[in-house]
């Protein structure tokens, strides 16, 4: 069985991603949770290097499961995850994860939290603090180095989570609904920052969300997953001019059309 991959939007706009090599591939992934919950079924996907790919779908479609399988945090029942052509089964230095609930150490300062990935690798304290400070600055949290997570707002906490993932200098950033526990204003601000970061960092992003607008606003490619058992139902490549201001992008014709198109595609999965 082969997953149905319809490149409708891509057909229309002309595929420009094809030229990019894929940094991560998943092949024939199946995941069945105990109790015969079939979360993912025959998922085949390629993630182009340097692109931001969004996994979008109704809740419970297995998008987080897929992301955690790519991260090596969960094992698929069948199928492989290939990073740069090599099969992986566990977390590796080339992938970094940003958690939905932030997963910050409540007993550690922002500085130590951001440097925690480096600490685990045994890097000396002065060195890792130097790197951590750089990324704290980059996510706009300078001055908060010695605060504890409970003293920060949700949006700031997620920035710490992002900085921690950036600090280990992985090629691929895996973001699991990073904005779902953040209020709307922070969410928008953070989305803009993420776009800016993409320009600077030149990393590959794989992003899980259930917000259509967010997916269209941020992504180079959007993978729509069907309801459980999750499979790839559509891959969309929005062609949106992101050179303008956020307000212009959100009023852009292509942006609005893509949102509408995805909604039509997802509609069938809504009860």
């Amino acid at each position: 069985m082969v997953a149905v991959t319809k490149l409708r939007a891509a057909d229309r706009h002309g595929e420009h991603m094809a030229s990019l090599e894929s940094i991560i591939s998943v092949r024939g992934i199946n995941k069945v949770y105990p109790g015969q919950v079939h979360a993912l079924k025959d998922v085949d996907l390629d993630f182009p290097a340097g692109a931001l790919t969004t996994l979008l779908g109704p809740s419970g479609c297995g998008k987080t499961t897929l992301l955690k399988i790519i991260a090596g945090l969960l094992e698929p029942n069948t199928g492989d995850v290939l990073v740069k052509g090599r099969k992986v089964t566990a977390p590796g230095p080339e992938r970094a994860f940003v958690f939905q609930d932030f997963a910050l150490l409540p007993w550690a300062t922002v500085l130590r939290n951001v440097g925690f990935g480096l600490e685990l690798r045994g890097m000396a304290e002065t060195k890792r603090n130097e790197i951590a400070r750089r990324y704290i600055d980059q996510v706009g949290l300078s001055g908060f180095e010695d605060k504890y997570p409970h003293e920060l707002s949700g949006g700031m906490r997620q920035r710490v989570g992002l900085a921690r993932a950036l600090a280990v200098d992985a090629d691929v950033l895996l973001l699991d609904e990073p904005f779902s526990a953040v209020d709307e204003q922070n969410r928008r601000k953070f989305q803009e920052d993420l776009l800016r970061l993409r320009e600077i960092e030149r990393k590959t992003f794989i992003f899980v969300t259930h917000s259509i607008e967010e997916a269209v606003y941020l992504s180079d490619r959007i993978v729509l997953l069907s309801r459980r058992p999750g499979r790839v139902s559509q891959v969309i490549t929005p062609q949106i001019d992101r050179s303008g201001s956020p307000e212009e992008i959100r009023r852009d014709r292509a942006y609005l059309d893509t949102v509408e198109e995805i909604w039509q595609g997802l509609r069938q999965f809504v009860d």
């Binding site: 970094a96 958690f99 997963a103 925690f116 600490e119």
Partner: peptide, 26 residues
């Protein structure tokens, strides 16, 4: 908190680091 344990794993913490740096403090 299982999320902290997953975080430690994803940042390549060893089982020993998991116990000392995550499980015991938490």
């Amino acid at each position: 908190n299982p999320s902290l344990v997953a975080m430690c794993r994803s940042f390549l913490g060893s089982p020993w680091q998991q116990i000392v740096k995550i499980i015991l403090p938490d």
